[in-house]
Design a protein around this nucleic acid. Structure first.
Lengths: 157, 157
DNA sequence: GTTGAAAAGTGCTGCGA
DNA sequence: TCGCAGCACTTTTCAAC
């Protein structure tokens, strides 16, 4: 695994290419090339470089979870019995497919998770059965999202 | 804007196409067609249908924020003076580029936000200057992520 | 709704500057 | 290191099933 950190030597062109593709990965290289006034080959070389450096981790399709029947987003603050149980708890939480994001945190919670469920019945099942059976968890606090008003990537410029 | 909700009549083929592309949007239709034993044209028709229905919201390039110099992820619980100030606060928070996710919530916080910053200096500037200048905010609680252990999409199957 | 193949457009590679 | 041109591949379209 490559080391994290470091800005490398991303120049302005690299940043602009990323900025465009971060919002829509389906834009063709030739169009980006026209917009930035370089050749398509240059875009290709830059992208390849950034892929090799691990700056680009891939691409994914964004779907509307509500439209495929997943209607509830919740955040879960998790208190662990002991901090040392973190990695154990994580590997158990990874098995729960509804957990889409998980952070090791400062502050009141040891672990902070984002989960997406179909409906209230589904959420209750995940909270009461799946989460509660993870060893090392003392107790949890649930915050339910009633509306996701912003969802975007960081702005590089 | 199309109405949200409803499962539509996504059949098994639609679900499987989405499942593949959600993890890697660069896989060619022809390859998906081979895997699911249908023609490339069918994949194309299904994708077009799902795009028109608003199920697919686009695609994006996943970048490693640390490698482009964004090293700190934080969650922000925001208390509003009055609940009625929500939409006003949201439009002001939208202007802060470091805010990448924002939810209207139940529970102790009115608003829950995710922000990504370059370093501690940058974070302090966002918290003390940008967030504090938003009208209607009473106080905030900050949770800093020391490690993102899981980051994925929902599993449709 | 699906298929298969033709047409159009894009990505990739090597040579030259 | 960058740009250009040719080849391979993909997406898109469409007539036929």
């Amino acid at each position: 695994m490559e080391n994290n950190y470091s800005n490398y030597d991303l120049d302005n062109l690299d940043i602009q290419i990323l900025s465009i593709l971060m919002n829509d990965a389906s834009i063709p290289y030739t169009e980006i090339a026209k917009k930035l006034i370089v050749s398509g080959g240059t875009i290709h070389v830059r992208m390849k470089k950034m892929e090799e450096l691990g700056i680009i981790k891939g691409s994914n399709l964004i779907i509307n979870p509500q439209k495929v029947g997943f209607d509830i987003t919740a955040f879960l603050g998790i208190y662990l019995e002991k901090g040392s149980q973190y990695s154990d708890a994580v590997s158990q939480l990874k098995e729960i497919k509804e957990v889409v994001e998980l952070h090791y945190c400062t502050g009141q919670y040891s672990i902070f998770a984002k989960i997406i469920c179909r409906d209230t019945v589904h959420l209750r099942k995940v909270l009461n059965e799946d989460i509660q059976s993870v060893q090392g968890i003392q107790r949890t606090e649930t915050i339910i999202s009633l509306e996701e008003s912003i969802k975007r990537q960081i702005s590089l410029v």
